[in-house]
Structure formats: structure tokens, C-alpha cells
Amino acid sequence: MPSVGTSFDDKIYHVVAYCGLTLVWLLYIKPIKKKRLYVIICLSAIFLGYILELLQYFLNPNRTYDTYDLIANSIGAIFGTLIAVKINVYKLN
């Protein structure tokens, strides 16, 4: 991956990846008025990040569990959800 030039490049990549993942999930579905589905998909992305962190910790001895990765994943999922909500609001009008 190209370096952004900071000491936390990895966390920036996590935010961008989970923002994109959540955007794709939410924009794939039809524009909806049910806010509950947005919350479910956002929480699903966060849960996926948690499961992947646990799997890499337990299955790969060369990888470590990082709470900051989980925080970055969660921030990305929330940003992706907020962006998708704004985009879908415009589609509904």
C-alpha cells in the first residue's frame, strides 16, 4: 500500500475500507425510509471487523489483535452509513 506519510497509515486504510464496504452495502439496496436497516448494516460491518480481528489473532501467529483497528473500522462504517443516508435521501426526493 502507498504511504500517506503518517505513523497511522494502517488506521486510515481501515477507515477508508470500512467506509467503502458500508457504502456499497447500503447503496446496493433500494433507497429506503426504514432507518433500522441502516443501523443493522452499520452494526454488521462493525461486527465483521471484530470477527476478522479475532480470526487473525487466533488463526495467524504472525498477526496481532489491535483495538485501534476495531475503532478505525467502526469509524469507517459510521462514516459510510452517514454518507449513504445522505445519498439515499436525495434519491428519495
Rank of each mutant, 00 (worst) to 15 (best):
M1A: 07
M1K: 14
P2W: 09
P2S: 11
P2N: 07
V4S: 08
G5S: 00
T6P: 03
S7N: 09
S7E: 11
S7M: 11
S7C: 12
D9P: 07
K11D: 02
K11C: 04
K11Q: 02
I12S: 02
I12Y: 10
I12A: 10
Y13D: 05
Y13S: 13
V15H: 00
V15L: 10
V16Q: 11
A17C: 14
Y18L: 05
C19H: 12
C19F: 13
G20Q: 07
T22A: 02
T22D: 03
T22W: 00
T22G: 06
L23I: 05
L23R: 06
V24Y: 08
V24P: 07
W25V: 13
W25L: 11
L26P: 00
L27H: 07
L27N: 02
L27R: 05
L27Y: 03
Y28V: 14
K30F: 04
K30N: 05
K30H: 06
K30W: 05
K30R: 12
P31M: 08
P31S: 03
P31A: 11
P31Y: 00
I32W: 06
I32A: 06
I32H: 10
K34G: 07
K34L: 05
K35T: 04
R36T: 13
R36A: 05
V39W: 02
V39N: 03
C42T: 02
L43C: 02
L43M: 00
S44H: 08
A45M: 02
A45D: 04
A45I: 07
I46E: 02
I46K: 03
I46V: 00
I46S: 04
I46Y: 02
F47P: 07
F47K: 08
Y50W: 15
Y50H: 12
I51Q: 05
L52T: 14
E53Y: 09
E53A: 15
L54H: 09
L54K: 12
L55N: 10
Q56A: 05
Y57C: 08
F58K: 09
L59K: 14
L59R: 15
N60P: 01
P61G: 01
N62F: 13
R63M: 05
D66N: 12
D66A: 12
D66V: 14
D66W: 11
T67L: 10
T67Y: 15
T67E: 15
Y68S: 13
Y68I: 15
D69R: 13
D69T: 14
D69V: 00
D69Q: 05
L70H: 04
L70G: 08
I71Q: 13
A72M: 06
N73Y: 01
N73F: 01
S74L: 06
S74I: 04
I75A: 06
I75L: 07
I75W: 02
G76M: 01
G76I: 02
A77P: 03
A77T: 01
I78N: 01
I78S: 00
F79A: 13
F79P: 09
F79M: 15
F79C: 14
F79D: 00
L82N: 08
I83L: 09
A84T: 00
V85T: 11
V85E: 09
K86N: 13
K86I: 15
K86Y: 14
N88Y: 03
N88H: 04
V89C: 13
Y90A: 09
Y90G: 00
K91S: 01
L92A: 08
L92G: 10
L92D: 04
L92T: 12
N93E: 15
